[in-house]
Every structure is written in C-alpha cells, then in structure tokens.
C-alpha cells in the first residue's frame, strides 16, 4: 500500500493550471523552502560540532605527522577552485530554470555533476594518499578529527551528486513542473551551502593547519 504523502505535489502536476492551484503551489514552495532552510541550519550545528572537535585536537599529533607535513596547499587550492566552479555552474542551472530552458538546465546540471564528481575524486585521492602514508584516521586525534570533518563534507557533496541524478531523471520524466522547480531550488541552496562550509574547512583545517 502506498500512502499518498506527496499529495499536494501530485495535484500540481496533474491538475489544470487554474489560479487556485498556482496559489497553493506558491504557498507550498514558501513553506518547503523554509523547512529546508531549517534543515540547513541544523547542518550548520552538525558541522560546528565537528569544527569544535577539530579545533580542540588539531595539535594532538600523538607523535604522528602534522598538518604542515601532510597538506599540499596547491592541491587544496585546486580542490577549492573546482568546488567554486561547480557552485557557479549550478548558478547557471538556476538561471536556466527561471527561463524554463529545459535543455540548458540539463546541460548545466550535467556540467555541475561532472565538476562535483571531480571534487569527490580529488578528495578520495587525497584520503587514499594520506592512508597509504600511514596517516589514516586511527593515527592520531588530529587525523581522526580531520577525516571526520572533511569526510562529512565530502559525504554531503556526494549526496548532492545523487540528488542531481534524481533531478535529471525527474526532469526527463515530468518536465519542468512546479515540483521539479521547487526541488531544483532546494538543491541549489544545498549545493551553495556546501561551498560555504568548504570556505571554513580550507581556512581552519588546511591554511591554519600548515602555519
């Protein structure tokens, strides 16, 4: 048995576009966006916890390697550039969606996906490299906190990539409906939010880490 939890959205997809439906959509969008914003704020608290832990143990090397020995700032700068680029390409998704240019939405979503996947690939390479050097998460408190913090950010980015695939499938199936527009808007918030978190990561972890 399926419970029709999605009823208002199903309604907006199939009902003819009369004014009452448009008003419902607008109200639903406002509430959904605010609800998602509250989720993002709770995510801020999650990341703040990880940042606090990192700040407390960031010099607890247990005789192991330090940030100065491990971090390659040139590589981190490249990662930062890739993530920033993906934020801008997602901006083009938002602009194309506003103008209802479906092909452009597909194109920029695909570009954002590839750039986002490149970021994840770079991060996995970096993690793998650290673990091979004997600087895995179990080496010291510093490295445990490092992997927990950067890994949680990476996991969020990876979730964003899965969400992008889901949106591409939904757009192909339904077209640019009100529900699809709404979800694209939320995904945009999520994606840009992750770039904001990364600013704090590269400043606190990498830049201050090598000083």
């Amino acid at each position: 048995m399926t419970i029709p939890l999605d009823l208002p959205e199903a309604h907006s997809v199939h009902a003819p576009q009369h004014p009452a439906a448009a008003v419902d959509d607008a109200e639903l969008t406002e509430k959904t966006v605010f609800g998602f914003w509250l989720y993002l704020m709770s995510d801020v608290v999650l990341f703040a916890t990880l940042f606090a832990v990192y700040a407390v143990v960031c010099r607890s090397y247990a005789g192991g390697p330090t940030g100065r020995e491990l971090f390659d700032l040139g590589f981190v700068l490249a990662e930062t550039g890739v993530l920033l680029l993906s934020s801008v390409t997602f901006g083009f998704v938002t602009l194309a969606a506003q103008e209802n240019r479906k092909q452009a939405v597909f194109l920029w979503m695909a570009v954002t996906f590839v750039v986002g996947a490149a970021f994840i690939a770079m991060e996995l390479y970096e993690f793998n490299h650290l673990i091979e050097e004997g600087a895995g998460p179990s080496r010291s408190a510093f490295l445990s906190a490092y992997f927990a913090l950067v890994g949680t950010h990476g996991l969020h980015v990876f979730t964003g990539l899965l969400w992008m695939i889901a949106m591409i499938v939904q757009m192909a199936r339904d077209g640019l409906t009100a529900a699809v527009h709404r979800r694209l808007g939320l995904l945009g918030l999520f994606w840009h939010f992750l770039d904001v978190i990364w600013i704090v990561v590269f400043t606190e972890v990498y830049l201050i880490g090598v000083l």
């Binding site: 448009a22 959509d25 607008a26 969008t29 406002e30 966006v33 700068l77 930062t80 550039g81 920033l84 934020s87 801008v88 901006g91 083009f92 938002t94 602009l95 969606a97 506003q98 209802n100 640019l176 409906t177 009100a178 527009h181 709404r182 694209l184 808007g185 939320l186 945009g188 918030l189 590269f202």
Partner: peptide
C-alpha cells in the same frame, strides 16, 4: 514566472554569479 517566484534563486541574475565567482577567486 509563477513557478519560480518564491524559489531561493528567484532574484538571481548572471551578474550575481559572475560577481560572486570573481570576488571568491580573489579572496581565496
């Protein structure tokens, strides 16, 4: 339009993204 006016990016323009990109690159 009606579908996008209450969305987070409703007030967005190319100017925002170009400006954001440029400033971010400089600051980073």
């Amino acid at each position: 339009d009606r579908k996008t006016e209450h969305l987070p990016g409703a007030g967005a323009s190319l100017h925002h993204y170009a400006c954001g990109m440029l400033l971010s690159v400089i600051l980073t």
